[in-house]
């Protein structure tokens, strides 16, 4: 009796799992091809628990389910260990390999080895400059400098004068390229701010401090979706009226776009990177098809604003955008 009362009192009539179940589930498919069950491996430079790579994986898994593929995923943020993971994929005699080249020099030898062993290789996300050199069939991803340039142009259009580029990982080449890209096309001034990505209160107070000390900043660009909401919080506390913009997308960013706390987001469509890579490898094995014509296949930048927000909210919640 006591337990029943307690559990009744402890329930929430709003939100939570029950509300989610009431919503539609993401579609999951059944294989509808007659090809044999090939084995494809994806090896990325992702750290533990990275939202972005989670979405790449769900795209890849969806394509694998559809194409009757056995999909193997492994990751290590350290280049040397990532190369070892590629070696184990070669040892397993996979039928296709998808790999990221965040630190190309360390990956060169082992990727070439895979190509030599007759494994079709597609690079995704990073390494578009060296992809062809290493013998990969094509590269699927976003040019980070181009993405930065797109942000710079969007900021011009919005009449911004001074932007803050918030870097949450020191020494990440892709992040530097994004900020440099903004600087290239943006007519105003760009300033960098380094924050510690694993400490949210630290990120918030740093952005807050910067906004308090420099009132001229009228736009803040974060390089990862989770930091956009934090920057918005910092803006509120500092009394600044800067616009918050961000690279990448998640449920909170979609909600922010909708209610106007976030100006725009630049997406590189991680789901598409995973899905397309697996599907393209299947097409290559099945029909010797390849996309790109020797040029990288770009999945971004795609600028998302308030008018896209309604649809995105549903999609981000189920983890595919």
């Amino acid at each position: 009796m006591v337990v029943a009362t307690a559990s009744l009192a402890g329930c929430s009539s709003t939100g939570g799992k029950r509300a989610e179940e009431a919503r539609q589930q993401a579609a999951s498919g059944k294989a509808n091809v007659t090809t044999p069950r090939w084995k494809f491996a994806m090896v990325t430079h992702s750290g533990d628990g990275d939202t972005y790579w989670d979405i790449v994986q769900s795209g890849a898994k969806q394509a694998a389910a559809k194409d009757n593929i056995e999909f193997l995923y492994s990751h290590d943020k350290e280049a040397g260990r990532q190369a070892q993971l590629v070696q184990t994929a070669i040892d397993k005699k996979v039928d296709g390999l998808i790999v990221t080249l965040a630190k190309p020099d360390a990956m060169k030898k082992v990727v070439k080895k895979a190509v030599k062993a007759g494994i079709p290789v597609i690079t995704i996300n990073s390494g578009q400059e060296v992809s062809q050199d290493f013998g990969a069939l094509t590269h699927i991803g976003q040019d980070e400098t181009l993405a930065g340039e797109a942000v710079g142009r969007e900021l011009n259009e919005r009449g911004k004068k001074k932007a803050l580029c918030v870097l949450h990982e020191q020494g990440n080449v892709g992040h530097e390229q994004r900020c440099d890209g903004i600087e290239k096309t943006f007519d105003g001034k760009v300033e960098d701010l380094y924050v510690d990505g694993t400490n949210m209160p630290g990120v918030q107070s740093s952005v807050e401090a910067k906004l308090q000390s420099d009132k001229k900043v009228d736009s803040v660009v974060t390089l990862g979706a989770p930091f956009a909401a934090t920057a918005a919080e910092a803006k509120k506390d500092s009394g600044s009226d800067a616009e918050i913009d961000t690279f990448d997308l998640n449920a909170k960013v979609a909600a922010g776009l909708k209610d106007g706390t976030i100006g725009f987001a630049v997406d590189q469509q991680p789901y598409l990177q995973g899905y397309q890579a697996v599907d393209l490898l299947w097409l290559y094995r099945y029909n010797a098809d390849m996309l790109g014509g020797g040029k990288p296949v770009l999945t971004g930048p795609q600028i998302l604003t308030k008018k896209d927000a309604g649809k995105l909210e549903e999609l981000t919640k189920r983890g595919t955008r």
Binding site: A9, G10, C11, S12, G15, G16, K17, R18, A19
Partner: peptide
């Protein structure tokens, strides 16, 4: 809280 759809205080 989320999985049990419980009051957040629980």
């Amino acid at each position: 809280s989320y999985q049990m759809t419980a009051n957040t205080w629980v």
